[in-house]
Write a protein that binds this DNA or RNA. Structure first.
Lengths: 356, 356
DNA sequence: TGCGTAAACTGCAACGTTGTTGTAAACTAC
DNA sequence: GTAGTTTACAACAACGTTGCAGTTTACGCA
């Protein structure tokens, strides 16, 4: 592989000159355009490409941002989350010349720990940790004291943290769904979601539902189905939700609308309703959350809270770049907390409340 | 950040000694266990972590493999493909201490070109190019003469190439489906797939169908629907397939089974059949291809050709590692071509052929 | 002619590793 | 007691950059 020295020999100049020219700094140092052209010509001829490691070592920056994903396997929701986040992060960092490294769990070592190792080795300049996809239920690793020195951004942190973070505004999302139902005249609304997951977003969404129902002067109730990890497979979560609702449907329903924890749950609810001989949305309206691939495909198309995962990734990417430049300038980075707002995709699973 | 020199000072030994001890080479060089312990202690105390760039520059290896993915957006199938491949690749390379870099298109520069650039800069040791996900329809970049020197593995190459590659055995997959139908007594089988995509896998699968039908002494026919890129959205492809089939169903069907280009197409076919008053599998059997997320979810659950994308990634990862060690040993790597065999997931969309 | 100064480069010392060679001291052998 | 051998380290030269501190050469001006 040719290096600066080879180019220098060929152009009959010094290494410093070649370096300056090829980085476009030759005007500030004072190098003739004639000389610069000779250098560029020589570089072309020998096929020079700058060595990444030498440059990174010298500059002290890797120009790489890591995304830590602890994926249990190949799940549908996981893939979508993963791809959405990565797409957003990449969109944010590519223009600044940064690259994206995928950090996964390996053997006993979790993705987050591997990411932190990458930061320490200087292989990574910054790290993005998706709370949902990195089994950070307790935030143990992130509570380490020297973590604050590392350039880490947490997505949807499932616990309280003062690290920089980007989160979906779930409260706003649920509120959007509830308000939509309230405007359609619904007064008795049911929440359908999984059982508690500690401090996970589940509780967050359910809590948001209770608040939103109160604000809209609705009568809200909750059904929880016992289901923890199996939601990786769409079918399982849908069935669990369906079973939980079917139980309640043995008598006449005391609600006119359902808000599901996510799209899959909402679809399970629709199936349960249809099996009980009820029509959506004529008898009961259903709202989902996530606007996933199934939402448009199902009959009737699902009204659901829509959020671009790539937006979260994008904000996270920008935030991590900001942290990097702050650290470069020896400024103490401040623990920002960004929030991304969802929207409501109104389709055909919601309609006016049936009069009592 | 502490370096070897800091550790050396603290342990009152030379830098070389520290380097040897921390890499476990102290027995071969001849360093007392006592001294080694002192070094390790010192390293612990100052919090030493080896510098990735310095090591990589010295060793001439990045310990990073790139995966070039040209994703147009956040599509469902794309995400699944992406995640599956990445998971497999990572599984293959993690044990050898390699990391995974995501290469996407940026601005005008395609993912493949960016990957090649990464190889040249020595940021990457090897590159994996998924044929399907990197708009390599013509293989222009890969035809460059010096490409053969670079450590590249192509997945499902959509064109003829002598570069190392890993491919799904689509011929075997389609044969599996056709044989299954033949065993159930079907004699008249219909292929339903998109219109030609140049040299893309579509033609490959359809070609395989024709061959397999011939081999099984079946009467095979094809319907193609005009649909190129819209298959990113599941709904579009399903509807296109559904429309194409519905046209044919105005009269009594002259077939007892359908093989779909993929699951989505098969599901579209099932919907068309059901709308025409035909039952699956009593009247017509349907087989899909890919065993995607919908296959289990749909009613009736779809019989489909199943292939673990992660297997393709795994083989690709192993192959690229092999190329790297070959190149390290200055051996000329041979352009291997690996093939991954699919299986058939028999569910409830296929049954015995209805007697004429 | 001599001096200051600007232009146009070059030389050199890092950056943090690694592997090979070098060299004391200690230990054996006769 | 000294030559040879082993032990236990240390010194040093890369690897390919970059940026600052020289060092020429040319030129204007008194």
């Amino acid at each position: 592989m040719p290096n600066l020295s080879d180019v220098a020999k060929r152009a009959h100049v010094s290494i410093s000159t070649v370096s300056a020219v090829l980085r476009g700094k030759h005007t500030t140092v004072g190098i003739t355009e004639l000389c610069a052209m000779r250098v560029r010509q020589a570089a072309q001829e020998v096929g020079y490409v700058p060595n990444y490691h030498a440059r990174s070592m010298r500059l002290g920056r890797a120009h790489v941002v890591g995304v830590a994903m602890q994926l249990p396997g190949v799940s549908e929701t996981g893939s979508l989350y993963f791809n959405g986040i990565c797409g957003g992060v990449h969109a944010a960092i590519q223009d600044e010349g940064y690259n994206l490294m995928l950090i996964r769990n390996a053997g006993r070592t979790g993705a987050v720990d591997r990411g932190v190792m990458g930061l320490r080795q200087r292989m990574l300049d910054g790290l993005i940790i998706p709370g949902r996809a990195s089994n950070l239920r307790d935030g143990q690793t992130l509570a380490e004291p020297d973590m604050r020195e590392l350039l880490v951004v947490v997505l949807d942190p499932p616990f309280q943290t003062d690290l920089p973070s980007v989160a979906l505004d779930e409260v706003a999302g649920v509120a959007l769904a509830v308000q939509h139902l309230a405007e359609l005249g619904h007064r008795r609304v049911l929440w359908l979601g999984p059982d508690q997951w500690g401090d996970s977003p589940t509780t967050g969404r359910e809590q948001a539902f209770i608040t939103a129902a109160w604000d809209a002067a609705l009568q809200g109730a909750s059904i929880r189905y016992a289901d923890r990890r199996s939601s990786d497979r769409l079918a399982n979560a849908a069935q669990a939700a369906q079973a939980a609702l079917s139980e309640r449907l043995t008598q006449d329903p005391d609600f006119t609308a359902i808000v599901g924890y996510n799209d899959v749950v909402a679809i399970g609810a629709m199936q349960a309703l249809q099996q009980a001989g009820l029509q959506v949305p004529q008898d009961v309206s259903v709202v989902g959350f996530d606007d996933g691939p199934l939402a448009q495909l199902i009959a009737p198309p699902l009204t659901t809270v829509s959020h671009r995962l790539s937006d979260i990734g994008l904000q996270a990417g920008r935030l991590v770049l900001e942290l990097i430049t702050d650290a470069q300038a020896r400024r103490r980075p401040r623990g920002q907390r960004l929030v991304v707002s969802p929207t409501l995709s109104v389709r055909h699973s919601t309609g006016p409340a049936r009069p009592r």
